[in-house]
Design a protein around this nucleic acid. Structure first.
Length: 233
DNA sequence: GCGACAG
DNA sequence: ATCTTGTCGC
């Protein structure tokens, strides 16, 4: 079974990007590899600067029992694609892929900042990234791109299915009492219950998973350090 | 045509 | 996402 797909061009038009998404869609596997054992879980994120065109990427790998970092890698790559809702992966994945190439410790699961199949064409950045990197992946977003969901309880752990075009594409998950939920959906080599389970396990204290929080801090540090270096000449 | 729209 | 200070609520 092919867990990883070949690489495609990144210098594409939005129309071509949509076509690539349609082709990749059928390759997404919506169940975890049999016998998946998760010892390390990672988060990926990208930070951008207002006037500039550099994307700062980072992946932080955590020990799943302690949620402590065991490895990390960063990158700084020119952004070639604008932000277009539904085409986020074409802007951010080249940056994440560079960090992934430099990463020396592979995680068993990778959590993306954005959606998986909760996407207009069922190919959000978590699906696309999981396919290209060949890793089980989860989408965990802070807001909805498509779909709706009913009300959920105030308690941590409360959930409500995200429905789009009569399909369950994800789950709104309350990771902390009385705080806005996060939106979880499978990426690649993943199913919804397992995705929800890992997001909750990675978010014992704050709204967002520790994976995302670590990656977010890392890429912001990279961006600021680069900005200061530029100021000094 | 109008509204919505991950990061 | 980024630009930005203080401020309200648990």
């Amino acid at each position: 079974m092919e867990l990883q797909v070949g690489w495609h061009r990144w210098d594409v038009t939005p129309k071509e990007a949509v076509e690539i998404q349609r082709e990749l869609r059928s390759r997404v596997v919506l169940h975890p590899p049999p016998g998946l054992r998760v010892e390390r879980i990672a988060g990926a994120d990208v930070s951008t600067e207002k006037g500039r065109d550099t994307g700062y990427g980072g992946i932080v790998v955590l020990d799943v029992a302690s949620l402590t970092p065991v490895a990390q890698a960063g990158s700084a790559v020119p952004l070639r694609f604008p932000y277009v809702p539904g085409l986020l992966s074409f802007r951010e994945l080249p940056v994440v892929a560079e960090a992934w190439a430099r990463l020396e410790v592979r995680p068993d699961v990778l959590i993306f900042d954005g959606h998986g199949i909760a996407h207009p064409r069922r190919l959000g950045i978590a699906c696309h990234g999981g396919l290209l990197l060949g890793v089980p992946s989860i989408g965990c977003a802070k807001s909805l791109l498509v779909g709706k969901h009913g009300r959920l309880g105030e308690a941590r752990g409360s959930t409500a299915p995200i429905i789009h075009k009569d399909e369950v594409v994800g789950m709104a998950v309350r990771t902390r009492k009385s705080v806005q939920p996060v939106y979880v959906s499978p990426g690649h080599l993943m199913d919804l219950p397992t995705a929800v389970e890992w997001v909750l396990r990675a978010s014992p204290k704050y709204r967002e998973p520790e994976t995302t929080r670590h990656a977010h801090r890392m890429v912001n540090a990279l961006r600021r350090a680069d900005g200061e270096a530029a100021e000094l000449g």
